[in-house]
């Protein structure tokens, strides 16, 4: 006989009295490790047990890279028009509106200038949650203007890519942003201003066919998906099984397209070390 006997059968707690764990208190990584959200934030949004780099946005990257999280945002108010009156199952204008409401962002990139280890740095950082980090006219223009700011003030430049590629709803105009951003980077290169490209998960399509692959150094976070054509497209076109780890940061490093892979925790140190070395300046502590 059981030593404990339930007096009444079934669950008695009424629905109203049931208590849920508040949302966002825990994070589960793809390998199934569970992390406390606060712990995660303290650990640079990297799952401590398995090193999984959680997808984060401009807000978090600016916090991580700028001293005390302080920065001045550039060209804050640029936002998309709908030059082609694009409509698929949904109007582009509605998509934009939804994305703005859902994310609180104006478009898929934010640019800012601030101090990193005491020295000024311009960063343009993409936000994947805004229509898949897709690159349209606003992304192109903001990146071009941020590069201009670097050029005029002689400040090193960094782009953090996190994008599915060009924004289809701006069709040929979004394609032209590849040329626009690359033209600016050519000017930076001619002026001898260092440009660092950080590829994060995911960096695909048009971004890899322009600024993401054009850094004086191209670096990446561990395990990020980086490639021109997405894995599904490659599989469908070639009919071949893809090797394990295809198009990961490690794969790109092995094939010679990255200078190194950096854990997010070491990112700030490493980019500033590179800047000091390439500019032949004393290394900041």
């Amino acid at each position: 006989m059981a030593w404990f006997k339930r007096k009444e059968k079934g669950i008695q707690t009424s629905t109203e009295e049931k208590r849920d764990t508040p949302k966002g208190l825990w994070y589960k990584s793809p390998t199934g490790k569970i992390v406390d959200s606060e712990e995660l934030a303290k650990n640079f949004y990297v799952s401590p047990e398995d090193g999984y780099h959680v997808r984060i946005g401009s807000k978090e990257y600016f916090e991580i890279l700028f001293d005390e999280g302080k920065f001045k945002e550039l060209d804050k108010n640029l936002s998309s028009k709908d030059p082609l009156k694009f409509e698929d199952s949904k109007k582009y204008t509605d998509r934009l509106k939804d994305a703005k409401e859902k994310t609180g962002l104006k478009d898929a990139v934010r640019s800012a200038v601030g101090k990193s280890k005491g020295k000024e740095l311009v960063i343009a950082c993409m936000d994947f949650k805004f229509i898949g980090g897709s690159m349209g006219s606003v992304v192109g223009e903001k990146i071009a203007r941020a590069a201009d700011y670097s050029l005029k003030n002689n400040i090193p430049f960094m782009i953090i890519s996190k994008s599915g590629g060009a924004r289809m709803m701006e069709a040929a105009l979004s394609l032209m942003q590849l040329a626009k951003t690359s033209a600016k980077l050519a000017q930076l290169a001619d002026a001898g201003i260092p440009y660092i490209s950080l590829c994060t998960d995911p960096t695909t399509g048009g971004t890899t066919a322009s600024f993401a692959m054009l850094g004086d150094i191209n670096i990446a976070e561990p395990g990020a998906l980086i490639g021109f054509a997405g894995p599904r497209v490659v599989r469908d076109t070639t009919g071949k099984d893809l090797p394990e780890g295809f198009q990961t940061s490690e794969f790109l490093l092995e094939h010679g397209f990255l200078d190194f892979i950096s854990h997010r925790k070491e990112l700030k140190n490493k980019i500033n070390l590179y800047i000091d070395l390439i500019q032949n300046q004393p290394i900041r502590a």
């Binding site: 590849l178 033209a183 050519a186 322009s210 993401a212 021109f228 070639t238 295809f246 397209f257």
Partner: peptide
């Protein structure tokens, strides 16, 4: 969009051309 194309850096090749063509 092929496997070897990705291995040899399709994105980088196009990006480099675009940049060099602008100047």
């Amino acid at each position: 969009p092929g496997l070897e194309a990705e291995e040899r850096g399709q994105g980088e090749a196009i990006a480099r051309n675009i940049l060099e063509m602008t100047r």
